[in-house]
Nucleic acid binder design. Sequence first.
RNA 1: GCCCGAGUGGCGAAGUUGGUAGACGCGUCGGCUUUAGGAGCCGGUGAGGGAAACCUCGUGUGGGUUCGAGUCCCACCUCGGGCACCA
Length: 809
Amino acid sequence: MTSETNKTERYDPSAIEPKWQEHWAATRLDETPDDSDKPNYYFVTMFPYPSGDMHIGHWYAIAPSDCQARFIRMKGYNVLFPMGFDAFGINAENAAIDRGIHPAEWTEKNMAHWREQFRSLGASIDWRREVVTCYPEYYRWNQWMFLKFLEKGLAYRATAPVNWCPRDETVLANEQVINGRCERCDSLVEKKDLTQWFYKITEYADELLKFDGLDWPDRVRVMQQNWIGRSEGAEIEFPVDGHRDAVIRFFTTRPDTIYGATFMVLAPEHPLVATITTPAQKAAVQAYVAAAKNASEIERTSAERPKTGVETGAFATNVFSGQRIPIWIADYVLATYGTGAIMAVPAHDERDFAFAKQFGLAIKEVVSPDGDEHPVLEAAYTGDGRLVRSGPYSGTPTEVAKKAIASEATRTGIGKPTVTYRLRDWLISRQRYWGTPIPIVYCAKDGTVPVPEDQLPVVLPRDVQFTGRGGSPLAKIESFVNTTCPKCGGRAKRETDTMDTFVDSSWYMYRYPDPTYDTFFMNVEVAKKWLPVKRYTGGIEHAILHLMYARFVTKALRDMGYLWFGEPFLHLRNQGTIVFNNRKMSKSRGNVVAPDEYVARYGTDTLRLFMMFMGPWTEGNDWDAAGIEGTRRFLNRFWTVGLTKRAPEGARNADLDRMTQKTIQKVTEDLEAYHFNTAIAAMMELTTATLHAEGPSRDAAVDALVLLLAPFAPHVTEELWQRRGGTGSVHLQRWPAYDVAATREATVTVVVQVNGKVRDRIEVPAGTKEDVVRAAALRGQKVEQAVAGKAVDRIVFVPDRLINIVTER
RNA sequence: GCCCGAGUGGCGAAGUUGGUAGACGCGUCGGCUUUAGGAGCCGGUGAGGGAAACCUCGUGUGGGUUCGAGUCCCACCUCGGGCACCA
């Protein structure tokens, strides 16, 4: 490099970055028109929950997404990249309890700060379209959807054993219980019987299993499919002895083993328990039921724990074997799965086997791997085989017997083939203040009455006391609770629970196109230009919760005629997790790294670039800033070459021209695949190459680099674009094109192997024929030595790549 | 226990249909430049051997397929994620 360029102005991001941020805001660069001569492209990244400040984990989510949006924009699309705030939630309420600040105020303060941080990050967001879920203009549509779901039977109120977080003092959906603990605060979750509102997501279980036409990561699909947990089998009933009308209905995936059902087990919560328990067993059963109720989910579901249970004293008849079998209760049978009752087949189910051993119950082999009967089983045999001791079915293979026995049960009217899901309905009630009020009124005369649509929104009252104890704060506000019945006008009380905040985020992407539209949840005319979301990005931690709820709500709205598509997000990519101190970065757990220090020291562009260079985005990484110097040095070099004077006269440099073409190709393809790290590596190589070059080829390389780097480092590229004489913003330029023919090398290195080991390398013109390469290869001394006079057995030739000489051995 | 994913230098990582393992970056070593500090530039850097040309070994472990395996197959180990007494 010349001494002249060495003395150029230093790269100072603190002088460049705020300047361009202001300029872009003033010129409304990031505002996306609804109509443009370019095709529309809707790109959404998950909106944040504005608690505290933006940390490195947020940058890792947002910066690469912004890079992607900018890239698509430069490729010639009119990209809508909006942002908003998932503003309801328990953190705001906890702040109110701890610091006496109103949740609304706390949230506003945070959002104001977040908007600043988004700007300092250089995110190209159209802020005119901001969506904030805690505003009545937004959440009224949560309420409206609730009423529509209610009309369609997709919302219902039921008493059920629900997950209760004792610390947050609210119920939780199944999806929000992680390993028996609260998703937010990690408290051990308890079971409680409560009357709550549910959304009937199970109605869509089968459709949610399908991902046809979606470009989603496999792991997310698999996670959702596991969560939904479809099992095929049969529901069959056995009569209870001495109770004329009592039958126990159970679900089984193994009807072929029915002759081996030697006892039955009910969940402690099963409604028949009280009815069928004999007087002699009453005390023991009641004690067991009480104990099961108090046990935490963790205790109950620990597979290590020995089986417990109590006899009810009652008996059922195994209709197939004709045997009289005892009925037990045990907590290894779950009230919430299947029918809450099982036929126990100890010979062919590990849990039933353990239970039978524990309590000395009969174990009867009915499936045999070899077709022979075995007097004693050491363990449950859960594989396939032929039936034994199974009356007319003996000798039948299990797969055949499954169907035969299920249809026999159907024929005799005691059962039918059934599909069961692990998925439970979505419990949306929360006993919290900072959420969407559920638009329901309870009237002594008319019962549960929905608030009429024209009275929406039911506004969340401002004036409220936070104590952190004693249930929903709304229940204590008399002016809110006491109302009149919409039907009879008499005195009535409002529902005081609010909605799960996942309701808010299940449809926000439909609000962005026109967030102020006040006659419908979305402005169809505008939304038609954008929906559905073409690309969606966000954290892998939402693989089940948010993404499944959004799919469900979309399908429900479609079936009500409000949407013209059934999947919200056509294309999905998830970033991995940023781990710090061996844990996910999280404000609520006090485990965060702030970006500010790095922005001050290295600049936004460097930090953005570093986040994308660390490793594959979809894999996540441990946070370690050690390498950030490298990305800054890269931008220093880029700055230096960017400021070199143009040299239009002079000879072209074919090697550099080819490298430029290859780099454009590489960066383009890598960005399509979200491989930010390797795209940056390629740009680093080209930048280094330009340092030693001059003339028009160098200028062309640098011109290309300014454009290629623009989505990654928007500020420094804008500055250099201007200084190099560009017109308009660099971010409005067309993405550089490449010519595949121009990326091809004139000469190639062909590897010469002898028996698969590399012995030599030869340079030949691309496309050289085998005989020429062979002759050149055999001429080499190294090859001659390796061959050592042995006869050549055969030669493997891969054009432009390698030639392998195989000798006799 | 079941279902995914991953194990590559001191570190973060690259690696098309099987075809030059370790691109790019950090760190480190050497050199140049600078009054100094910082920064910058050039070069080396998987391990072992050799004065050198080169040679041998090397992608979690053990087998296998192949002219050729980080890549494919089988078994196992470790880590990460999801599910879990789900009948």
